[in-house]
Amino acid sequence: MTTSYVEAIRAALGDALRDDPRVFIYGQDIAGSFGGAFKATKGLSELHPERVINAPICEDAITGVAIGAAIDGMRPVIEFQFADFASIAFNQLVNHAATTFWRTGRPCPLVARLPMGGTKGSGPFHCQMPEAWLSHHPGLVVVAPATVADAYWMLRDAIACDDPVIFCEHKYLYNHLRETGDPRLAERLPLGAAVVRRAGSDCTLVSYSAMLHECLSAAGVLEQEHGVSVEVIDLRCVRPLDTATILESVAKTGRVVVATEAWPFGGIPAEVVAVIASEAFHLLDAPPRRVCAVDTPIPVQPDLYAAHRPHAADIVEAVLETVRF
């Protein structure tokens, strides 16, 4: 038996609806036989017709509704059809949800699911990575699972979390990533913890979401073809950052490359590098490097798109430059 990333998300939503009457799902095209643009909610409204609710196209109001329901004791999960459209809800997310606990002392336990990341042919408005601009605002937890097990358990824990959680799920992984077995039986790591996915000694490679798999692929090439031992860290949660796990690895390797599918300016890698530079400068044997997308909107034409997004080969090159510094 194998389970895909989107099946794990669907299982997490179904189990949460089954286990907790406070949970409801609200978003566009999620109910009925359609079951969501990516089928993450398919079949759930048949089991829970009162709690899987179709919304009109209104990301701001969807989020406002979730905020009100959360502070009144529910556990809303909202789905934006594409993460790109969360920009419509920016105000409610960063000014309302993120400030509620700090201003009032009342938790605001909502989960916003954001299908993010690039897929071929989707272009500037259906491929964006929202984690950096949402992470900038204090009061939001921002997670980006990279594995099937994490897709399941991090969503369960996001729903259980008393704070607003931005759940960034990668669209490419939905049906391309499969793991053996039932994710319910997989290891359940702490929601805020980074994890070492591959141990190594020459260079630390930090990433999250789909880019983790490019990093693991690069690490294999580096070991087999160049004799370079790379330690790969999956951040899992990008806000707050598990800095201890990052610094522990850098203390071992003295070199670090941070890879993302997102844009470079003000991104998660910039934050990771800043933490290392200020906390572990004395441990570094080479300048930290970033591998990011090209700093333009995301192109639709396949050749342009392939050149826009970092690949394992780009990561291999960056690691080699770092270890040869």
Binding site: F24, D60, G64, I67, G68, A69, I71, P76, Q92, H96
Partner: peptide, 15 residues
């Protein structure tokens, strides 16, 4: 921003 939040409270109570 507030009307949708009020709606959320009412939706919670309806549920």
């Amino acid at each position: 921003a507030m009307p949708s939040a009020v709606a959320g409270v009412l939706l919670a109570r309806r549920l």
